[in-house]
Amino acid sequence: MKSCLFYSGILLLCLAVGLYVVCSLYLLRNPWILHKKKRLEFYCRHISHRGGSGEKIENTMEAFTHAVAVGTEMLEMDCHLTSDGYVVISHDYNLMRQTGYDKTVSSLRFQDLPLYEERLEVTFYVGHYSTGKDRKFVLLEDLFKKFPSMPMILEIKENNDLLIKKVSNLVKQYHRESFTVWASEESDYCPYTWSVIIDAVIKISKPFKRNLLFFLCRGILLLLLFYTGLLPFVPLGESLLLFYLPSIINRTYIPEEAILKKRFVVYLLQKLTMRKSLFEHLIKRGLQVNLFVCNEESDMEAAFAVGATGVMSDYPTLLTNYIKKHPPPPPPPITQPR
């Protein structure tokens, strides 16, 4: 009798696991059964990293203007706060790499920010440099005025409530709620940053709530959900997935993290993250999948081949020419959110 109950239990467990696996796989391919598809007001294949830092000095008005002129569909940038309360575009908090001055953005007034170096190495393309006539830092508000309808990714580079609030207010003031995307990489404050940004977003408007990019913690959670089969059952608040193309690591991009310099770790990262079935599932749910930073044609080809809907590059002209030579399928129609 006990033996019979034991085998019956094993059989029931196997049936339950089998049913779970079948349901998970089916819903992975057919997510609309459980989830309403997201309807974004933008669809961007071409994204310029720091305004296209390989062709002009990064994050300058000249760089952003050039990228838009050659056909970019989205601009990516990083936000900091000056001592006099201005939201300024700068990748680094400390200005040594960019200007040669060992000062932080928050310690200076906007008018006292030094000029960029005349020649600046491209972070994601070691050994390559950019130059330009414009070497001035840019205010976020000036970019909003210059490009009122251009989608932008705004990365919050500081764990700073005031910075988040000021960026939120600017987005609302210039009516950019539906085509501005929030991002953050503050791993040390990941849960904190996530909750603060969510709160800020909700206070602005409902459409803006959807335009979130997966932060580090949420990206890890996304992979865990995918590999455990739970992803098809879980609602997602984000609109975009932005991730490294792992093949650039230690080739065009040399990371500071020692762990990423190990060949096996990069190989494992490639195998775990570049999953076409994962990307297809997210796309079917209305998310956009962007890979960065692709500064060679072979990397652009690899990114689109694995299922990316968009590519981020430091070389907007190169990316424009690549897309012209290799046009992807037409994007889905953009409809107004309900």
Rank of each mutant, 00 (worst) to 15 (best):
S247N: 11
F279Y: 15
K145N: 09
R210Y: 06
G51E: 05
P330S: 15
L115I: 02
R176M: 13
C294G: 02
K38F: 04
L291C: 07
I156D: 03
L212Q: 06
V171C: 08
F42K: 06
T180M: 10
P191C: 03
P331I: 13
R338V: 15
K56Y: 00
L318N: 00
T273F: 01
T317Q: 14
D161P: 04
L143T: 09
V105Y: 02
L278A: 11
Y244N: 10
D199L: 12
W182T: 12
H49G: 03
S48W: 05
A258R: 07
T317M: 12
S24L: 11
T273G: 00
Y315N: 02
P329M: 14
D314Q: 12
S90M: 13
S247K: 10
A302E: 14
T180Q: 05
V265M: 10
L11A: 15
L5S: 08
N211P: 05
A258T: 10
H281V: 06
I197N: 00
S277L: 09
V196E: 11
V22H: 02
Y93T: 15
Q111D: 14
M150Y: 00
F292E: 01
D314T: 11
C14F: 13
A303R: 05
V138K: 02
T273H: 00
G132H: 05
L272R: 09
V293F: 05
G132Q: 08
F124E: 01
Q336W: 05
E62D: 13
A308D: 00
L224G: 02
S24C: 11
I259L: 14
N295C: 12
L222I: 05
P246Q: 03
M300H: 01
S48G: 05
E141F: 08
K56V: 09
K276D: 11
Y192S: 08
Y43Q: 03
S106V: 09
E155G: 11
G100C: 08
L268K: 04
V234W: 06
I197D: 02
E117L: 15
S149K: 12
T335P: 00
L120K: 06
L230A: 11
Y129N: 08
S3P: 02
Y174S: 00
D134T: 10
V289Q: 07
L282V: 10
D134E: 13
N94D: 11
E280C: 10
S184E: 03
I153A: 00
K166R: 15
E280A: 14
G229C: 12
F243H: 14
E117D: 08
F64N: 01
C190L: 07
L13K: 03
K203G: 13
N169C: 08
E296P: 04
A302V: 08
K276T: 15
E41F: 00
R97T: 09
L287D: 03
E62A: 14
I164K: 03
G127I: 13
G51L: 04
A303C: 11
Q336E: 14
Y189A: 15
Y253W: 14
G54M: 07
I249K: 06
L216W: 07
M74E: 01
T72R: 04
M61E: 05
L108G: 04
H80C: 09
E58M: 13
Q288V: 10
A200N: 14
Y125K: 07
K166P: 03
K157E: 04
Y244H: 10
F110T: 12
L225R: 04
S178Y: 01
L13M: 13
A67V: 02
C23I: 12
K166Q: 13
E177S: 13
T317L: 15
L230V: 12
L319T: 01
K145G: 03
C14Y: 04
K165G: 03
K36I: 12
G100T: 10
